[in-house]
Simulated scan of single mutants.
Amino acid sequence: MSLHLLSLNTARVQALATPQGEVRSGIAKRGRDGAAAVGTLGLEGDEQADLTVHGGPAKAIYAYASEHYAFWQTVRAQAGVSEWGQVLPWGSLGENLTLSGLLENEVWIGDRLVFPDCELIVSEPRYPCFKFNAVMGFNQAAKLMTQSAWCGFYLAVARAGTLSTGQPFELLAGPREVGIVELFKARTRRAT
């Protein structure tokens, strides 16, 4: 299967209503046209509110598999927060890169995603929090992500450059010692 960047998504920090009250967040990503410059701290035009858990050199960019979107559309409809058949726009899970052809169980820490003008290194899984519940519209979203391990993964920037929607990329294997799903499940088991 070919690997492609389906959507390049960014957001500025803004207010997000949660059951815990209003918080600042950059989770409301939306697709953007054209190319975006990629630097050590991520994509131009993108912001993170809480740098203790998002952003920085090791978590500069967040990638998520497009293949999981049908599941999230269905469970949101089942939870009564969207209409049946309502399509979630790319970026709705807070990802910067909506990818096609690459699932979490095929990704390991240290793997490289090589784009025509940029190279990224897989650094760790994404762990959901109450902000994910808020943006998805129901309180069980983080639990469902934890159960499925459809968490996506963070990327560090190995070679700065540019990214554009529609670009193909190549996955180069790293040391293949720790997988994304393995690390995600180990950490979420300890947290529960």
Score class of each variant (00 low, 15 high):
Leu5Val: 02
Ser7Tyr: 01
Thr10Tyr: 09
Ala11Gly: 00
Arg12Cys: 04
Val13Gly: 05
Ala15Pro: 11
Ala15Thr: 12
Ala15Asn: 13
Ala17His: 09
Ala17Glu: 15
Ala17Asp: 13
Thr18Gln: 01
Pro19Ala: 13
Pro19Tyr: 09
Gln20Phe: 04
Arg24Phe: 05
Gly26Thr: 08
Ile27Cys: 04
Ala28His: 13
Ala28Met: 04
Arg30Tyr: 11
Gly31His: 12
Gly31Ser: 15
Ala35Gly: 08
Ala37Pro: 00
Val38Pro: 07
Thr40Lys: 01
Gly42Asp: 09
Leu43Phe: 12
Asp46Glu: 06
Glu47His: 11
Val53Ser: 06
Val53Glu: 01
Gly55Asp: 10
Gly56Trp: 02
Gly56Ile: 00
Pro57Asp: 12
Lys59Ile: 08
Ile61Gln: 03
Glu67Met: 08
Ala70Ser: 14
Arg76Ala: 03
Arg76Gln: 08
Gln78Asp: 10
Ser82Gly: 06
Glu83Val: 04
Trp84Thr: 14
Gly85Ser: 09
Gln86Val: 01
Gln86Glu: 15
Gln86Leu: 11
Leu88Phe: 08
Gly91Val: 04
Gly91Ile: 03
Gly94Trp: 02
Glu95Thr: 06
Asn96Val: 00
Leu99Ala: 07
Gly101Thr: 11
Leu102Glu: 14
Leu102Val: 04
Leu103Ile: 09
Leu103Ala: 10
Leu103Ser: 07
Glu104Lys: 08
Glu106Ala: 14
Glu106Met: 12
Trp108Glu: 05
Ile109Met: 14
Gly110Glu: 13
Asp111Thr: 08
Asp111Leu: 13
Leu113Tyr: 03
Val114Pro: 03
Val114Glu: 12
Val114Met: 06
Val114Phe: 10
Pro116Gln: 09
Asp117Val: 00
Asp117Arg: 15
Cys118Ile: 00
Cys118Lys: 05
Val122Glu: 01
Glu124Gln: 13
Pro125Asp: 11
Tyr127Val: 09
Pro128Asp: 11
Pro128Cys: 11
Pro128Asn: 10
Phe132Ile: 08
Ala134Leu: 10
Val135Arg: 13
Met136Val: 13
Phe138Lys: 03
Phe138Met: 05
Asn139Met: 07
Gln140Pro: 01
Gln140Thr: 06
Gln140Glu: 11
Ala141Val: 01
Ala142Phe: 02
Lys143Ser: 05
Thr146Phe: 04
Gln147Lys: 06
Gln147Glu: 10
Ser148Gly: 13
Ala149Tyr: 05
Gly152Asp: 11
Phe153Pro: 05
Tyr154Cys: 05
Ala156Asn: 11
Ala158Met: 02
Arg159Met: 09
Arg159Cys: 07
Thr162Leu: 05
Thr162Lys: 14
Thr162Ile: 11
Leu163Pro: 03
Ser164Asp: 06
Ser164Lys: 14
Gly166Leu: 11
Gln167Ala: 13
Gln167Phe: 08
Gln167Trp: 15
Pro168Asp: 15
Leu172Pro: 00
Leu172Arg: 15
Pro175His: 14
Arg176Asp: 01
Val178Met: 15
Val181Gln: 03
Leu183Cys: 10
Lys185Pro: 00
Thr188Phe: 10
Arg189Glu: 07
Arg189Lys: 08
Ala191Trp: 00
Thr192Asp: 05
